[in-house]
Nucleic acid binder design. Structure first.
Lengths: 196, 196
DNA sequence: CTCTTTCTGTAACGCCCACTAAAAAACGTC
DNA sequence: GACGTTTTTTAGTGGGCGTTACAGAAAGAG
């Protein structure tokens, strides 16, 4: 009992939905719009993916499919400094990938704060390891660097969505990498800056 | 012929609307919600402010009322480096001001890209001045620093909305300030980093 | 062919949206 | 008190939203 076969490509529809959510956010996308862009009727979409929230989750799963692997790959560099440099550069490139919407689905979507927190935890863990290995002065400094890296990643995604091209994003990433703490003492680098 | 006096505080209603847009964005706020939070009926709100778009624009005008002045004040520091440090710190504090929604209405709202561009132009102009005065090596470097500063500002706003406290934002701002180009040659600071 | 199963297409459902027509109420003025 | 003006109140308007009931169409199984 196989029943009538579906006439559309389920993966293609999911990719269209992902792109729509990526470009305009969860609230900015209506089910009717996805249906039109995918070329199918609403009941077909509901039968294949469930309601709008389930469709969004499946689209997010598709988006983040290779993202965690990429993160681990970047962070696996021998030194934390190199790991962060890799992460900054590959993120800048991802946020400005040709043929894809600018920015980041996860960064741009308010309701994905939990997933952002997960990524931040991963970055912080890598920097804590660097503190334990002596590459950073302390876990407090690791937390500070982590907050800074999180900030730059989120900011690059925002700039990308505002139309910044890849060169601008890579400029920002390079300048960010330049903020790495000086090797002998972090006080040297912060000389002249305010202190809490 | 004075007519019946209005029974609500127009400024208080506008402040409530500003807070709502600040917290949840233009699309996340319904007119009915503003009415309930302000304690007035819809026709009163429409008579006082016009339609939703006009209300949003007035709320934005209220939000940005003192913002440009603050920006000019920060950027008026004698050196660009100090100007950017002031801007980073005051922005971190603004994004985490107690009693106000976290983050930034302008940074968080997709449809305010033009205003963000205006702020970025102002920052870039200050850094170009620094290049002309010899504080930065070139206008190209000024553009790079500008892209970096824009990124950090947008990122801090995003982190604040994700729940980061003031200390985390100030950590990020301090680390960002540390990325200022070395005085003698910017190549010294980028030593060991990738180049395009 | 008939039955069962699964998908497609049409046509709605109720809900909330931004927005407003109309009548009643509260003022200053005559 | 009657009038003109402005606000409040009530009760809607049409439209888009997410979602679905239902009938017909396309497949394999008997």
């Amino acid at each position: 009992m196989t029943g009538r076969p579906r006439t559309f490509d389920k993966d293609a529809v999911l990719r269209a939905a992902m792109r729509a959510f990526w470009e305009r956010g969860y609230e900015g996308v209506s089910v009717a719009q996805v249906c039109e862009e995918a070329g199918i009727a609403a009941p077909s979409l509901y039968a294949a993916f469930g309601d709008k929230k389930a469709l969004f989750e499946k689209a997010c799963a598709l988006y983040t499919e290779h993202l965690d692997d990429d993160l681990e790959r970047d962070l696996s560099a021998p030194t934390a400094r190199e790991a962060i440099e890799r992460l900054l550069r590959s993120s800048a490139e991802h946020f400005s990938a040709p043929g894809q919407p600018p920015g980041c689905l996860v960064m741009g979507e308010p309701r994905l704060a939990e997933r952002r927190a997960k990524t931040r935890d991963t970055i912080r863990a890598r920097l804590h390891r660097a503190a334990a290995e002596g590459e950073l002065a302390s876990t407090a400094e690791a937390d500070g660097v982590a907050a800074f890296v999180d900030t730059v990643l989120a900011g690059m995604a925002a700039l990308a969505r505002d139309g910044a091209d890849r060169a601008r994003l890579l400029d920002a990433a390079r300048h960010a990498a330049r903020a790495w703490p000086a090797q002998r003492s972090s006080q040297v680098a912060t000389e002249g800056l305010w202190v809490e």
